[in-house]
Design a protein around this nucleic acid. Sequence first.
DNA 1: CCTCGTTCGCGAACATCGTATGCGATGCAG
DNA 2: CTGCATCGCATACGATGTTCGCGAACGAGG
Lengths: 215, 215
Amino acid sequence: MEPELIWMRPEVSGVGRPPSRSRAEITEAAVRLADRDGLAGVSMRHVAAELGTGAGSLYRYVDNRDDLLDLMADHVYAEFQLGEPSGDWLSDLVAHGLQAREIFRRHPWLAELVLTRPVVGPNGIDVTEHFLAVLADHPAADGDKMVAMAMLNSVVAAAAQAEASPADMLRSARYIAHVAAAGKHPHLAALDLAPDGGDPLPGALRRILAGLLAK
Amino acid sequence: MEPELIWMRPEVSGVGRPPSRSRAEITEAAVRLADRDGLAGVSMRHVAAELGTGAGSLYRYVDNRDDLLDLMADHVYAEFQLGEPSGDWLSDLVAHGLQAREIFRRHPWLAELVLTRPVVGPNGIDVTEHFLAVLADHPAADGDKMVAMAMLNSVVAAAAQAEASPADMLRSARYIAHVAAAGKHPHLAALDLAPDGGDPLPGALRRILAGLLAK
DNA sequence: CCTCGTTCGCGAACATCGTATGCGATGCAG
DNA sequence: CTGCATCGCATACGATGTTCGCGAACGAGG
């Protein structure tokens, strides 16, 4: 009956026997495990084993598995290096997106998490604040800025996911080639997606952000 | 050892006892169930029960649960009404996005699915072909068109998800208000997201697409 | 019409999962 | 030193995805 985000609930109760572990410790173990075995490997039992404790004990720190996933996503968001805005908001945001890709590369499980749920822990909030700070002098409406941030995240996450599971991409490409060969989808058959060398992401982010936040 | 999409695998084998059900029948049962109980309610056992059969029997039609989810997503994509391009690509794409929202509203489980995996079944392919047809005369690069399509999907799916689970939105908003009150996030505290009446999505889609596909 | 080969439907089984509960141990406040 | 709230843990429960083996069902070939 407490539908509050986990960060709204106090970690220590103050009275009674003090806990032997912390949320941070559990989160780190879960992240370590996800980095090694993927999101599916993050079961309550495995996390508990990683900490040398029992599965049920985790529920003293976390209401359910979703809480743990929230903690994990926000935890790795601490890896963002949030510098001072340079005055060139476009370059700053593109750099921010590239930084996000590095984090997604270090933690391949993060993309799926970010696409499904919003990251609104302390670190997620700091990232949002930084994003808004970069755009502080931009005339766009606040709503549009938030949309731009969400789309920057989505694009980078989607790119990271494609990068992380090339087998799935090939499967889709094989099927598309198959139906294109049938001849009933001329535009699809005429698709030319060959990258012209180099990293396509920076240019894509530039165009997307410039388009979205055009004056 | 057959890493092909389910639509590449033949449904009927031609020899031996013929199956008593079809992929379509199973997919419809799964969709019906998801509409009623959400994605979590779509378990192999429940789907089987809906069809009056055993859980193991489904594996004659589908390799695993993910295959079934692929089938479901593509199945509801048949609800798209793909008319002839009007010549005004922007209006056509906005209308397409609003149509997508209607589908997401009818099938609240679809948003999560679309955000996680690409929809590349027969109907998904048709939708893509239609999207490209609308943009046939547009000078943008093919890659940019595909990015635009992905982002249109993401935005609508995200909006639909927010619409479908207002409780989660309120939880996040409550937390954000809490940290904003602490005073260390001035830009966040100054956020003004009040909608100025009316449906904000059409305008947002217009701006996004116009920005993305600007000449 | 009968037989053969193959596939089907199904029930049982297996490993694993998230989660609830009860109990003895623990450590701080007074 | 005592009281007591909280802790850690073992156990248990229901449900999940998936595999396997069996007998029944069906179409094709003779």
